[in-house]
Design a protein around this nucleic acid. Structure first.
Lengths: 209, 209
DNA sequence: TTTTTTAATTGAACAGCGTCTAATTATGTG
DNA sequence: CACATAATTAGACGCTGTTCAATTAAAAAA
Protein backbone atom coordinates (compact mmCIF):
# COMPACT_ATOMS: atom_id res chain seq x y z
CA UNK A 1 0.00 0.00 0.00
CA UNK A 2 3.01 2.28 0.42
CA UNK A 3 5.79 3.47 -1.82
CA UNK A 4 3.88 4.07 -4.99
CA UNK A 5 5.28 6.35 -7.64
CA UNK A 6 8.72 6.58 -6.14
CA UNK A 7 10.72 5.93 -9.28
CA UNK A 8 11.91 9.00 -11.12
CA UNK A 9 10.81 8.97 -14.74
CA UNK A 10 12.30 10.63 -17.82
CA UNK A 11 9.35 12.57 -19.07
CA UNK A 12 9.02 15.84 -20.89
CA UNK A 13 11.40 17.02 -23.57
CA UNK A 14 14.64 15.17 -24.02
CA UNK A 15 17.67 16.51 -25.75
CA UNK A 16 19.18 13.17 -26.79
CA UNK A 17 17.62 13.39 -30.25
CA UNK A 18 16.40 16.15 -32.50
CA UNK A 19 13.01 15.77 -34.16
CA UNK A 20 14.48 14.43 -37.40
CA UNK A 21 16.96 12.20 -35.60
CA UNK A 22 14.14 10.68 -33.60
CA UNK A 23 12.12 10.15 -36.76
CA UNK A 24 15.04 8.39 -38.42
CA UNK A 25 15.74 6.33 -35.31
CA UNK A 26 12.17 5.10 -35.05
CA UNK A 27 12.04 4.27 -38.75
CA UNK A 28 15.29 2.33 -38.58
CA UNK A 29 14.35 0.32 -35.50
CA UNK A 30 10.90 -0.29 -36.92
CA UNK A 31 12.39 -1.42 -40.21
CA UNK A 32 14.66 -3.85 -38.40
CA UNK A 33 11.77 -5.23 -36.39
CA UNK A 34 9.70 -5.63 -39.55
CA UNK A 35 12.56 -7.52 -41.19
CA UNK A 36 12.79 -9.80 -38.16
CA UNK A 37 9.15 -10.50 -37.42
CA UNK A 38 7.17 -9.71 -40.55
CA UNK A 39 4.03 -7.63 -40.83
CA UNK A 40 1.71 -9.96 -38.90
CA UNK A 41 3.93 -10.05 -35.82
CA UNK A 42 5.10 -6.47 -36.03
CA UNK A 43 4.34 -4.37 -32.96
CA UNK A 44 4.56 -0.62 -32.68
CA UNK A 45 5.02 -0.91 -28.95
CA UNK A 46 7.99 -3.22 -29.40
CA UNK A 47 9.56 -0.97 -32.04
CA UNK A 48 9.29 2.07 -29.78
CA UNK A 49 10.71 0.04 -26.90
CA UNK A 50 13.72 -0.90 -29.00
CA UNK A 51 14.28 2.72 -29.85
CA UNK A 52 14.31 3.54 -26.14
CA UNK A 53 11.04 5.42 -26.29
CA UNK A 54 7.48 4.79 -25.27
CA UNK A 55 4.42 3.93 -27.39
CA UNK A 56 3.04 7.44 -27.33
CA UNK A 57 6.05 8.80 -29.16
CA UNK A 58 4.99 6.99 -32.32
CA UNK A 59 1.69 8.79 -32.16
CA UNK A 60 3.44 12.13 -31.65
CA UNK A 61 5.89 11.68 -34.50
CA UNK A 62 3.81 9.81 -37.07
CA UNK A 63 0.27 10.67 -36.01
CA UNK A 64 -0.62 7.02 -35.62
CA UNK A 65 0.47 3.49 -36.42
CA UNK A 66 -0.57 3.81 -40.05
CA UNK A 67 1.68 6.81 -40.51
CA UNK A 68 4.51 4.87 -38.91
CA UNK A 69 4.01 1.88 -41.20
CA UNK A 70 3.89 4.16 -44.24
CA UNK A 71 7.22 5.63 -43.19
CA UNK A 72 8.76 2.19 -42.66
CA UNK A 73 7.52 0.89 -46.01
CA UNK A 74 8.67 4.01 -47.81
CA UNK A 75 12.10 3.27 -46.44
CA UNK A 76 11.86 -0.16 -48.07
CA UNK A 77 10.92 1.50 -51.35
CA UNK A 78 14.04 3.65 -51.17
CA UNK A 79 16.27 0.66 -50.53
CA UNK A 80 14.54 -1.18 -53.34
CA UNK A 81 15.12 1.59 -55.86
CA UNK A 82 18.75 1.84 -54.84
CA UNK A 83 19.12 -1.93 -55.25
CA UNK A 84 17.72 -1.79 -58.78
CA UNK A 85 19.89 1.18 -59.75
CA UNK A 86 22.97 -0.63 -58.42
CA UNK A 87 22.16 -3.68 -60.53
CA UNK A 88 21.57 -1.55 -63.61
CA UNK A 89 24.83 0.31 -63.06
CA UNK A 90 26.67 -2.99 -63.40
CA UNK A 91 24.73 -4.02 -66.52
CA UNK A 92 25.78 -3.44 -70.11
CA UNK A 93 24.07 -1.14 -72.59
CA UNK A 94 22.34 -3.98 -74.40
CA UNK A 95 18.61 -3.36 -73.82
CA UNK A 96 17.71 -7.03 -73.42
CA UNK A 97 20.38 -7.64 -70.81
CA UNK A 98 19.33 -4.50 -68.93
CA UNK A 99 15.76 -5.78 -68.78
CA UNK A 100 17.03 -9.10 -67.49
CA UNK A 101 19.16 -7.37 -64.85
CA UNK A 102 16.12 -5.38 -63.79
CA UNK A 103 13.82 -8.37 -63.42
CA UNK A 104 16.42 -10.43 -61.60
CA UNK A 105 17.30 -7.58 -59.25
CA UNK A 106 13.58 -7.18 -58.53
CA UNK A 107 13.37 -10.78 -57.38
CA UNK A 108 16.68 -10.67 -55.53
CA UNK A 109 15.60 -7.69 -53.48
CA UNK A 110 12.26 -9.24 -52.62
CA UNK A 111 13.88 -12.52 -51.60
CA UNK A 112 16.66 -10.89 -49.61
CA UNK A 113 14.19 -8.60 -47.87
CA UNK A 114 11.24 -10.97 -47.65
CA UNK A 115 9.44 -9.49 -44.69
CA UNK A 116 9.96 -5.84 -45.44
CA UNK A 117 9.09 -6.35 -49.10
CA UNK A 118 5.89 -8.15 -48.29
CA UNK A 119 4.98 -5.58 -45.65
CA UNK A 120 4.60 -3.07 -48.48
CA UNK A 121 1.61 -5.01 -49.77
CA UNK A 122 0.41 -6.25 -46.38
CA UNK A 123 -0.25 -2.76 -45.14
CA UNK A 124 -3.60 -1.62 -46.51
CA UNK A 125 -3.73 2.14 -46.41
CA UNK A 126 -7.14 3.56 -45.71
CA UNK A 127 -8.20 6.19 -48.22
CA UNK A 128 -8.85 8.63 -45.39
CA UNK A 129 -5.26 9.00 -44.28
CA UNK A 130 -2.88 11.07 -46.35
CA UNK A 131 0.54 9.92 -47.51
CA UNK A 132 3.31 12.51 -47.05
CA UNK A 133 4.48 13.77 -50.46
CA UNK A 134 8.03 12.70 -49.68
CA UNK A 135 6.84 9.11 -49.31
CA UNK A 136 4.74 9.25 -52.47
CA UNK A 137 7.88 10.28 -54.32
CA UNK A 138 9.82 7.33 -52.90
CA UNK A 139 7.08 4.96 -54.04
CA UNK A 140 6.85 6.39 -57.55
CA UNK A 141 10.61 6.26 -58.07
CA UNK A 142 10.40 2.55 -58.78
CA UNK A 143 7.92 3.03 -61.60
CA UNK A 144 10.24 5.72 -62.93
CA UNK A 145 13.17 3.33 -63.16
CA UNK A 146 11.18 0.72 -65.05
CA UNK A 147 9.73 3.41 -67.28
CA UNK A 148 13.21 4.62 -68.20
CA UNK A 149 14.54 1.15 -68.99
CA UNK A 150 11.53 0.07 -70.99
CA UNK A 151 11.67 3.31 -72.96
CA UNK A 152 15.31 2.53 -73.68
CA UNK A 153 14.21 -0.80 -75.12
CA UNK A 154 11.04 0.13 -76.93
CA UNK A 155 11.83 3.78 -77.58
CA UNK A 156 8.45 5.34 -77.00
CA UNK A 157 8.21 8.86 -75.66
CA UNK A 158 5.73 9.98 -73.04
CA UNK A 159 2.76 8.23 -74.58
CA UNK A 160 -0.03 7.22 -72.24
CA UNK A 161 -0.08 3.81 -73.87
CA UNK A 162 3.59 3.38 -73.05
CA UNK A 163 3.11 4.18 -69.41
CA UNK A 164 0.24 1.75 -69.19
CA UNK A 165 2.44 -0.97 -70.59
CA UNK A 166 5.13 -0.19 -68.04
CA UNK A 167 2.67 -0.57 -65.18
CA UNK A 168 1.36 -3.75 -66.71
CA UNK A 169 4.89 -5.17 -66.92
CA UNK A 170 5.46 -4.31 -63.28
CA UNK A 171 2.23 -6.07 -62.39
CA UNK A 172 3.37 -9.11 -64.36
CA UNK A 173 6.65 -9.39 -62.49
CA UNK A 174 4.96 -8.54 -59.20
CA UNK A 175 2.51 -11.38 -59.66
CA UNK A 176 5.26 -13.94 -60.07
CA UNK A 177 7.27 -12.57 -57.16
CA UNK A 178 4.28 -12.25 -54.89
CA UNK A 179 2.95 -15.76 -55.44
CA UNK A 180 6.46 -17.06 -54.99
CA UNK A 181 7.14 -15.42 -51.63
CA UNK A 182 3.69 -16.05 -50.19
CA UNK A 183 4.27 -19.72 -50.86
CA UNK A 184 1.48 -20.04 -53.39
CA UNK A 185 3.96 -20.92 -56.08
CA UNK A 186 5.21 -23.77 -53.95
CA UNK A 187 1.74 -25.22 -54.20
CA UNK A 188 2.27 -25.02 -57.93
CA UNK A 189 5.68 -26.67 -57.68
CA UNK A 190 7.64 -24.02 -59.52
CA UNK A 191 11.25 -23.68 -58.49
CA UNK A 192 12.39 -20.54 -60.32
CA UNK A 193 9.63 -18.02 -61.00
CA UNK A 194 12.17 -15.31 -61.90
CA UNK A 195 12.96 -17.23 -65.07
CA UNK A 196 9.29 -17.41 -65.90
CA UNK A 197 8.68 -13.74 -65.16
CA UNK A 198 11.60 -12.74 -67.34
CA UNK A 199 10.39 -14.96 -70.17
CA UNK A 200 6.93 -13.35 -70.02
CA UNK A 201 8.37 -9.83 -69.96
CA UNK A 202 10.52 -10.54 -73.01
CA UNK A 203 7.57 -12.06 -74.87
CA UNK A 204 5.44 -9.04 -74.09
CA UNK A 205 8.18 -6.61 -75.11
CA UNK A 206 8.78 -8.54 -78.32
CA UNK A 207 5.14 -8.29 -79.25
CA UNK A 208 5.36 -4.52 -78.78
CA UNK A 209 8.57 -3.99 -80.76
CA UNK B 1 -18.01 -10.88 -2.46
CA UNK B 2 -21.12 -12.98 -2.74
CA UNK B 3 -23.14 -14.40 -5.56
CA UNK B 4 -20.33 -15.55 -7.80
CA UNK B 5 -20.97 -18.25 -10.35
CA UNK B 6 -24.70 -18.22 -9.97
CA UNK B 7 -25.60 -18.15 -13.65
CA UNK B 8 -26.27 -21.50 -15.27
CA UNK B 9 -24.09 -22.08 -18.27
CA UNK B 10 -24.57 -24.25 -21.35
CA UNK B 11 -21.49 -26.34 -21.16
CA UNK B 12 -20.70 -29.84 -22.19
CA UNK B 13 -22.10 -31.49 -25.27
CA UNK B 14 -24.92 -29.87 -27.12
CA UNK B 15 -27.19 -31.54 -29.57
CA UNK B 16 -28.17 -28.52 -31.66
CA UNK B 17 -25.52 -29.29 -34.27
CA UNK B 18 -23.70 -32.36 -35.45
CA UNK B 19 -19.94 -32.20 -35.89
CA UNK B 20 -20.13 -31.48 -39.60
CA UNK B 21 -23.00 -29.03 -39.20
CA UNK B 22 -20.99 -27.12 -36.64
CA UNK B 23 -17.99 -27.10 -38.94
CA UNK B 24 -20.07 -25.71 -41.79
CA UNK B 25 -21.75 -23.17 -39.52
CA UNK B 26 -18.45 -21.82 -38.25
CA UNK B 27 -17.01 -21.64 -41.74
CA UNK B 28 -20.05 -19.77 -43.04
CA UNK B 29 -20.16 -17.25 -40.22
CA UNK B 30 -16.41 -16.81 -40.44
CA UNK B 31 -16.64 -16.30 -44.19
CA UNK B 32 -19.30 -13.66 -43.71
CA UNK B 33 -17.25 -11.88 -41.09
CA UNK B 34 -14.21 -11.97 -43.35
CA UNK B 35 -16.25 -10.47 -46.18
CA UNK B 36 -17.44 -7.71 -43.86
CA UNK B 37 -14.27 -6.80 -42.02
CA UNK B 38 -11.35 -8.04 -44.08
CA UNK B 39 -8.38 -10.05 -42.88
CA UNK B 40 -6.80 -7.36 -40.71
CA UNK B 41 -9.94 -6.80 -38.65
CA UNK B 42 -11.09 -10.41 -38.64
CA UNK B 43 -11.47 -11.94 -35.20
CA UNK B 44 -11.91 -15.59 -34.37
CA UNK B 45 -13.62 -14.67 -31.14
CA UNK B 46 -16.18 -12.56 -32.97
CA UNK B 47 -16.80 -15.25 -35.58
CA UNK B 48 -17.44 -17.84 -32.88
CA UNK B 49 -19.70 -15.39 -31.06
CA UNK B 50 -21.77 -14.92 -34.20
CA UNK B 51 -22.13 -18.65 -34.57
CA UNK B 52 -23.47 -18.78 -31.02
CA UNK B 53 -20.41 -20.57 -29.71
CA UNK B 54 -17.37 -19.69 -27.67
CA UNK B 55 -13.77 -19.15 -28.77
CA UNK B 56 -12.61 -22.53 -27.62
CA UNK B 57 -14.87 -24.29 -30.08
CA UNK B 58 -12.70 -23.02 -32.94
CA UNK B 59 -9.74 -24.70 -31.31
CA UNK B 60 -11.68 -27.93 -30.91
CA UNK B 61 -12.98 -28.04 -34.45
CA UNK B 62 -10.07 -26.60 -36.42
CA UNK B 63 -7.16 -27.17 -34.07
CA UNK B 64 -6.33 -23.48 -34.00
CA UNK B 65 -6.94 -20.17 -35.70
CA UNK B 66 -4.73 -21.07 -38.64
CA UNK B 67 -6.78 -24.16 -39.34
CA UNK B 68 -9.92 -22.06 -39.17
CA UNK B 69 -8.55 -19.48 -41.61
CA UNK B 70 -7.45 -22.24 -43.99
CA UNK B 71 -10.99 -23.60 -43.94
CA UNK B 72 -12.49 -20.17 -44.57
CA UNK B 73 -10.12 -19.42 -47.44
CA UNK B 74 -10.67 -22.84 -48.99
CA UNK B 75 -14.36 -21.96 -49.03
CA UNK B 76 -13.44 -18.87 -51.04
CA UNK B 77 -11.47 -21.04 -53.45
CA UNK B 78 -14.53 -23.21 -54.00
CA UNK B 79 -16.73 -20.21 -54.69
CA UNK B 80 -14.08 -18.83 -57.01
CA UNK B 81 -13.83 -22.01 -59.06
CA UNK B 82 -17.61 -22.17 -59.34
CA UNK B 83 -17.67 -18.54 -60.50
CA UNK B 84 -15.13 -19.24 -63.23
CA UNK B 85 -16.93 -22.39 -64.38
CA UNK B 86 -20.21 -20.49 -64.54
CA UNK B 87 -18.62 -17.81 -66.71
CA UNK B 88 -17.06 -20.43 -68.98
CA UNK B 89 -20.35 -22.25 -69.31
CA UNK B 90 -21.85 -19.10 -70.81
CA UNK B 91 -18.91 -18.57 -73.18
CA UNK B 92 -18.67 -19.79 -76.77
CA UNK B 93 -16.27 -22.41 -78.07
CA UNK B 94 -13.94 -19.89 -79.59
CA UNK B 95 -10.65 -20.28 -77.67
CA UNK B 96 -9.84 -16.57 -77.59
CA UNK B 97 -13.23 -15.61 -76.21
CA UNK B 98 -12.99 -18.34 -73.59
CA UNK B 99 -9.68 -16.96 -72.41
CA UNK B 100 -11.21 -13.52 -72.26
CA UNK B 101 -14.17 -14.83 -70.28
CA UNK B 102 -11.75 -16.53 -67.89
CA UNK B 103 -9.65 -13.45 -67.25
CA UNK B 104 -12.65 -11.19 -66.84
CA UNK B 105 -14.38 -13.61 -64.49
CA UNK B 106 -11.17 -13.79 -62.46
CA UNK B 107 -11.26 -10.04 -61.94
CA UNK B 108 -15.00 -9.92 -61.38
CA UNK B 109 -14.81 -12.48 -58.61
CA UNK B 110 -11.95 -10.71 -56.91
CA UNK B 111 -13.70 -7.36 -57.09
CA UNK B 112 -17.06 -8.72 -55.95
CA UNK B 113 -15.42 -10.59 -53.10
CA UNK B 114 -12.65 -8.14 -52.27
CA UNK B 115 -12.05 -9.04 -48.66
CA UNK B 116 -12.39 -12.78 -48.91
CA UNK B 117 -10.29 -12.87 -52.07
CA UNK B 118 -7.50 -10.85 -50.49
CA UNK B 119 -7.66 -12.92 -47.32
CA UNK B 120 -6.39 -15.85 -49.36
CA UNK B 121 -3.09 -14.07 -49.84
CA UNK B 122 -3.09 -12.24 -46.51
CA UNK B 123 -3.02 -15.47 -44.54
CA UNK B 124 0.55 -16.72 -44.45
CA UNK B 125 0.51 -20.41 -43.68
CA UNK B 126 3.39 -21.61 -41.60
CA UNK B 127 5.17 -24.56 -43.12
CA UNK B 128 4.74 -26.47 -39.86
CA UNK B 129 0.98 -26.76 -40.01
CA UNK B 130 -0.60 -29.23 -42.40
CA UNK B 131 -3.35 -28.36 -44.86
CA UNK B 132 -6.20 -30.92 -44.97
CA UNK B 133 -6.15 -32.79 -48.32
CA UNK B 134 -9.71 -31.69 -49.01
CA UNK B 135 -8.60 -28.06 -48.86
CA UNK B 136 -5.54 -28.66 -51.02
CA UNK B 137 -7.87 -30.09 -53.65
CA UNK B 138 -10.08 -27.00 -53.51
CA UNK B 139 -7.04 -24.78 -54.02
CA UNK B 140 -5.64 -26.77 -56.91
CA UNK B 141 -8.98 -26.85 -58.73
CA UNK B 142 -8.41 -23.32 -59.94
CA UNK B 143 -5.12 -24.20 -61.58
CA UNK B 144 -6.91 -27.12 -63.17
CA UNK B 145 -9.49 -24.90 -64.82
CA UNK B 146 -6.89 -22.60 -66.30
CA UNK B 147 -4.85 -25.58 -67.38
CA UNK B 148 -7.83 -27.03 -69.23
CA UNK B 149 -8.67 -23.79 -71.02
CA UNK B 150 -5.12 -22.97 -72.00
CA UNK B 151 -4.67 -26.50 -73.31
CA UNK B 152 -7.79 -25.95 -75.39
CA UNK B 153 -6.16 -22.88 -76.90
CA UNK B 154 -2.58 -24.01 -77.29
CA UNK B 155 -3.22 -27.73 -77.53
CA UNK B 156 -0.30 -29.09 -75.56
CA UNK B 157 -0.67 -32.29 -73.63
CA UNK B 158 0.69 -32.89 -70.16
CA UNK B 159 4.08 -31.37 -70.86
CA UNK B 160 5.90 -29.88 -67.88
CA UNK B 161 6.64 -26.81 -69.93
CA UNK B 162 2.93 -26.34 -70.54
CA UNK B 163 2.07 -26.49 -66.88
CA UNK B 164 4.79 -23.99 -66.07
CA UNK B 165 3.28 -21.62 -68.60
CA UNK B 166 -0.15 -22.03 -67.06
CA UNK B 167 1.15 -21.09 -63.64
CA UNK B 168 3.03 -18.19 -65.12
CA UNK B 169 -0.15 -16.93 -66.78
CA UNK B 170 -1.99 -17.17 -63.49
CA UNK B 171 0.78 -15.20 -61.85
CA UNK B 172 0.50 -12.57 -64.57
CA UNK B 173 -3.22 -12.08 -64.05
CA UNK B 174 -2.81 -12.31 -60.30
CA UNK B 175 -0.27 -9.50 -60.34
CA UNK B 176 -2.63 -7.13 -62.10
CA UNK B 177 -5.57 -8.05 -59.91
CA UNK B 178 -3.58 -7.90 -56.71
CA UNK B 179 -2.03 -4.49 -57.34
CA UNK B 180 -5.42 -3.24 -58.37
CA UNK B 181 -7.28 -4.30 -55.25
CA UNK B 182 -4.53 -3.35 -52.81
CA UNK B 183 -4.74 0.14 -54.25
CA UNK B 184 -1.23 0.11 -55.66
CA UNK B 185 -2.61 0.45 -59.16
CA UNK B 186 -4.47 3.58 -58.11
CA UNK B 187 -1.08 5.08 -57.39
CA UNK B 188 -0.29 4.22 -60.98
CA UNK B 189 -3.52 5.81 -62.21
CA UNK B 190 -4.78 2.80 -64.14
CA UNK B 191 -8.51 2.52 -64.39
CA UNK B 192 -9.04 -0.91 -65.94
CA UNK B 193 -6.29 -3.42 -65.19
CA UNK B 194 -8.42 -6.32 -66.45
CA UNK B 195 -7.99 -4.99 -69.98
CA UNK B 196 -4.26 -4.83 -69.48
CA UNK B 197 -4.06 -8.30 -67.97
CA UNK B 198 -6.05 -9.76 -70.83
CA UNK B 199 -3.86 -8.01 -73.39
CA UNK B 200 -0.72 -9.47 -71.76
CA UNK B 201 -2.19 -12.95 -71.61
CA UNK B 202 -3.12 -12.84 -75.29
CA UNK B 203 0.33 -11.57 -76.23
CA UNK B 204 1.96 -14.35 -74.25
CA UNK B 205 -0.32 -17.00 -75.75
CA UNK B 206 0.30 -15.65 -79.24
CA UNK B 207 4.04 -15.96 -78.79
CA UNK B 208 3.53 -19.62 -77.78
CA UNK B 209 1.20 -20.53 -80.63
C1' DT C 1 18.30 35.76 -13.55
C1' DT C 2 13.77 34.17 -12.66
C1' DT C 3 9.27 33.16 -14.33
C1' DT C 4 6.17 31.60 -17.64
C1' DT C 5 4.86 29.30 -21.61
C1' DT C 6 5.33 25.62 -24.74
C1' DA C 7 6.30 21.14 -26.41
C1' DA C 8 7.70 16.43 -25.81
C1' DT C 9 7.42 12.20 -23.32
C1' DT C 10 5.47 9.19 -20.27
C1' DG C 11 2.69 5.51 -18.11
C1' DA C 12 -1.68 4.12 -16.98
C1' DA C 13 -6.23 2.96 -18.52
C1' DC C 14 -9.33 0.59 -21.75
C1' DA C 15 -11.06 -2.71 -24.74
C1' DG C 16 -9.93 -6.12 -27.58
C1' DC C 17 -7.15 -10.01 -29.32
C1' DG C 18 -5.10 -15.22 -29.58
C1' DT C 19 -4.00 -19.10 -26.81
C1' DC C 20 -4.31 -22.37 -23.30
C1' DT C 21 -6.46 -25.01 -19.51
C1' DA C 22 -9.36 -26.51 -15.67
C1' DA C 23 -13.96 -26.97 -14.80
C1' DT C 24 -18.38 -28.31 -16.24
C1' DT C 25 -22.04 -30.91 -18.34
C1' DA C 26 -24.78 -33.37 -22.08
C1' DT C 27 -24.50 -37.46 -24.33
C1' DG C 28 -23.59 -42.33 -25.27
C1' DT C 29 -22.23 -46.82 -22.99
C1' DG C 30 -21.99 -50.55 -19.66
C1' DC D 1 -28.81 -46.46 -13.04
C1' DA D 2 -23.78 -45.23 -12.78
C1' DC D 3 -19.90 -44.31 -15.48
C1' DA D 4 -16.82 -42.78 -19.00
C1' DT D 5 -16.38 -39.84 -22.85
C1' DA D 6 -16.44 -35.91 -25.54
C1' DA D 7 -17.86 -31.17 -26.23
C1' DT D 8 -18.26 -26.62 -24.53
C1' DT D 9 -17.34 -23.02 -21.56
C1' DA D 10 -15.33 -19.20 -18.67
C1' DG D 11 -11.41 -17.41 -17.12
C1' DA D 12 -6.59 -16.32 -16.91
C1' DC D 13 -2.43 -14.68 -19.25
C1' DG D 14 0.17 -11.70 -21.88
C1' DC D 15 -0.02 -9.17 -25.64
C1' DT D 16 -1.87 -5.48 -28.80
C1' DG D 17 -3.47 -0.46 -30.55
C1' DT D 18 -5.32 3.83 -28.97
C1' DT D 19 -6.14 7.69 -26.04
C1' DC D 20 -5.06 11.02 -22.52
C1' DA D 21 -3.97 13.47 -18.22
C1' DA D 22 0.15 14.12 -15.79
C1' DT D 23 4.73 15.37 -15.88
C1' DT D 24 8.94 17.65 -17.04
C1' DA D 25 12.68 19.55 -20.06
C1' DA D 26 13.57 23.17 -23.02
C1' DA D 27 12.52 27.69 -25.00
C1' DA D 28 10.74 32.27 -24.48
C1' DA D 29 9.63 36.17 -21.84
C1' DA D 30 10.18 38.92 -17.94
Amino acid sequence: MFNFCVIKHDMGRRSDHTASELRALLINRGHELMAEKGFAKFSGREAARRAGYSVGTIYNVFGGLDGYLIAINSQTFRLWSAWLEAALAKATNDPASRIEALVRAYFEFAETNRNTWMAIYDHRIDRSIEIPPEDTLAREALTGIVDREVSLTLGFGDSGEGRRLVRSLIATVHGHCSLWLTGSYALMQEEDPADQALARVLEILASHA
